[in-house]
C-alpha cells in the first residue's frame, strides 16, 4: 500500500476483518490468533481463511472445544508478553468462558493493585436474524458492557471492522470486539489506505433535527433505512452509531439530544436491564430538560429467539417499527 493513496475499493465486512488480522500479524510478531476452527477450517465465518497458509499453525492456532481453557490461556499469554487475539466462535459459546472473561481478564489489573494488565483482544460473532433459534442468536454485548475492566466494541461499518482491531491491540486492557454475523457479507467502499480508527467515540451516521435514534451494530442499518422513509414525510432523524458500549461515549448522544429534543434507542438486546436502559438513564441524568418527549426504546421482545422467520422478524426491532415509533413521538409531542 502506498502512503496517501486514495484509490477506493469495495470490500466486505468479512474481508475488512481479515485484512485487519493480516495487518496485525504482519506488524507485530507478538500477535497471534487462536480459537475453534480459525486455521484449517478457515474460520467458522471464513474470516480467517488463508491466514494459516500465510502465518503458520503457531500463530493461527486451532484450539479444541475448550472455551474456558483457551480464553484463559489467552489471558495467560497476554500476561506473558504476547498480544493474543482470541476468537470465540460466537457470543453464545462465550458463556462457557464468561468466568475467565469476567473473573480473570476484567479484574487482574485491579486485584493486583495495578501490577498485571491483560492486553487481550477477544473477537466474537454476535446477533440474531439468521433463523438459528434461541441458543445461537444472542446479543449479549450490552450484558458484557455491564462489567468494569473490559472494553466492548461493536463495529457496525466496514471501516470500523477494518480499523478497530489494531486500536484494540494497542490497548493495555482486555477488549471484546462483537462482530454481527449478519454483517459479514455487507460491502462498502474503503480507501486503499484505510487503517486504524478510534475506539472511544460514537459517530453521527446521519444528521437530522427532529429526533436522535441511538443504536449500534446491525440495527444501525435499520435505523438508517427508517430515517430515509421518515425523511420523505419531512421528519429528519439523526442516527447515532455508539460503536463502543463500554466506555460509553455519552457526550455524543447527549449533544445530539440537545439538538433534536427527542431520543429513541434501538437495541437488539432485551429491554429489561439492557444497555438501552443505561442510555435512557444517561439521557435523564444529562439532558432531561432538553427533552420534548419521553425517551423511547425499541428492543427485542422479551423472549428467547424463535426459529420461524416471521416470528424472529417480529421479535427483533425492524425499520417499520422504528418509523411507527418516531412518527408517533414527533406527532404526539410536536
Amino acid at each position: 500500500m502506498i502512503d496517501g493513496e486514495q484509490a477506493l475499493r469495495t470490500i466486505t465486512y468479512r474481508e475488512a476483518v481479515r485484512e485487519a488480522l493480516r495487518e496485525a500479524l504482519q506488524k507485530d510478531e507478538r500477535v497471534f490468533l487462536m480459537g475453534e476452527d480459525v486455521g484449517r477450517y478457515g474460520g467458522c465465518f471464513a474470516v480467517s481463511k488463508g491466514l494459516l497458509e500465510a502465518f503458520g499453525p503457531e500463530r493461527i492456532r486451532d484450539t479444541p472445544l475448550s472455551e474456558s481453557g483457551f480464553v484463559g490461556a489467552g489471558i495467560g499469554a497476554a500476561l506473558g508478553g504476547m498480544r493474543p487475539i482470541v476468537e470465540v466462535m460466537t457470543v453464545n459459546f462465550s458463556l462457557l468462558c464468561a468466568d475467565q472473561i469476567i473473573n480473570n481478564a476484567a479484574v487482574y489489573l485491579y486485584m493486583s493493585g495495578g501490577q498485571f494488565n491483560v492486553p487481550l483482544v477477544i473477537r466474537l460473532a454476535t446477533g440474531g436474524g439468521r433463523q438459528l433459534a434461541a441458543q445461537h442468536s444472542r446479543s449479549l454485548e450490552g450484558w458484557y458492557a455491564h462489567i468494569p475492566g473490559i472494553k466492548i466494541l461493536s463495529p457496525a461499518t466496514v471501516e470500523d471492522a477494518r480499523g478497530m482491531l489494531w486500536t484494540a491491540l494497542q490497548d493495555p486492557d482486555p477488549v471484546l470486539i462483537f462482530e454481527n454475523s449478519g454483517l459479514y457479507n455487507m460491502e462498502a467502499t474503503l480507501g486503499a489506505d484505510a487503517g486504524p480508527v478510534d475506539i472511544h467515540q460514537a459517530r453521527v451516521r446521519r444528521a437530522g433535527r427532529d429526533i436522535s435514534i441511538i443504536t449500534y451494530s446491525a440495527s444501525l442499518y435499520k435505523a438508517l433505512e427508517a430515517a430515509e422513509t421518515l425523511a420523505k414525510e419531512g421528519i429528519e432523524a439523526e442516527v447515532i452509531d455508539l460503536r463502543t458500549l463500554r466506555p460509553l461515549d455519552e457526550r455524543t448522544f447527549l449533544e445530539s439530544v440537545a439538538r433534536t429534543h427527542r431520543a429513541l434507542i434501538v437495541d437488539e438486546g432485551w429491554r429489561s436491564g439492557g444497555i438501552s436502559a443505561e442510555i435512557a438513564s444517561r439521557i435523564m441524568e444529562g439532558a432531561f430538560y432538553e427533552l420534548d418527549a419521553p425517551v423511547a426504546r425499541l428492543c427485542s421482545q422479551e423472549a428467547p429467539m424463535p426459529y420461524a422467520k416471521h416470528m424472529e422478524d417480529a421479535v427483533l426491532p425492524q425499520a417499520a417499527g422504528i418509523v411507527d415509533l418516531v412518527r408517533h413521538m414527533v406527532n404526539a409531542h410536536g
Binding site: 481453557g69 484463559g72 490461556a73 495467560g76 499469554a77 497476554a78 500476561l79 508478553g81 504476547m82 480473570n104
Partner: peptide, 9 residues
C-alpha cells in the same frame, strides 16, 4: 488455563 497461557507465551 492462565498457567497454560503463561507457559504458551
Amino acid at each position: 488455563p492462565i498457567a497454560v497461557g503463561l507457559a504458551l507465551a
